[in-house]
Simulated assay, not measured.
Amino acid sequence: MNRIALIGSGGSGKSTLAMDMGKILDIEVWHLDAILWKPNWILTPREEQKQIQSQLVNRDRWIIDGNYQSTLDIRLEAADTIIFLDMPRTLCLYRVLKRRLMYHNRSRPDMQSGCKEKIDLQFLKWIWDFPSKKRPQMQQKLANLSMDKQIITLKSLQEVKRFLASMKDQV
């Protein structure tokens, strides 16, 4: 595992897993939320997003977490390992609400400064609808990838813990 893409719903644990894996494997971690959102929640234009990600995936080793459907193929094609965090929506919603309370009126460590933690109904609805609307699209994309990619789907906190433990044993 040298080029790792982490995908999944908001609140699924992508950033946390990316940081944990980065420490274990000694690979630089790139959080797309921190790269693509400018202060005050201004999103980088799509063409610039593509350029940024194309440069990142040309590196020898990386971990990139984030969905960003319009540029997902850039990461999936370049990755040797894709980890899909397919967590229950109730867990994802709980984590997002907890995160909002934890980082009230300030930015998370995996975000740009000036992007204070916020929640809106549209984001909560996106998380709730993820299993029925986004999961099938992601699963189809993963099924269409070449066979030389390692695709790992983790569906619970216990599976994530076992995955990290096995990774530590191999290093």
Rank of each mutant, 00 (worst) to 15 (best):
N2Q: 13
A5V: 04
I7W: 00
G8C: 01
G10K: 07
G10V: 00
K14F: 02
A18K: 00
A18Y: 03
M19H: 14
M19S: 15
M21I: 06
M21E: 09
K23L: 13
I27R: 06
E28D: 12
A34T: 06
A34V: 08
I35T: 08
N40K: 12
I42N: 15
Q51R: 14
I52Q: 15
Q53W: 05
S54Q: 14
N58Y: 12
D60W: 01
D60N: 15
D65Q: 06
G66P: 03
G66C: 04
Y68G: 01
Y68L: 07
S70C: 09
D73Y: 06
I74F: 00
F84R: 04
C92P: 00
L93V: 04
L93S: 01
Y94P: 01
Y94C: 04
R99N: 08
R100M: 09
H104F: 13
P109G: 11
D110H: 04
G114H: 05
Q122I: 11
K125Y: 05
W128L: 10
D129C: 14
K134M: 08
K134F: 02
P136D: 06
P136K: 07
Q137D: 09
M138I: 12
Q139T: 05
Q139G: 03
K141R: 12
L142A: 03
L145V: 08
L145F: 09
M147Q: 09
D148C: 10
K149P: 03
K149Y: 08
L154E: 00
L157N: 12
E159R: 07
E159A: 08
V160A: 11
L164M: 11
A165C: 10
K168Q: 15
K168L: 13
Q170D: 10
Q170K: 15
V171W: 15
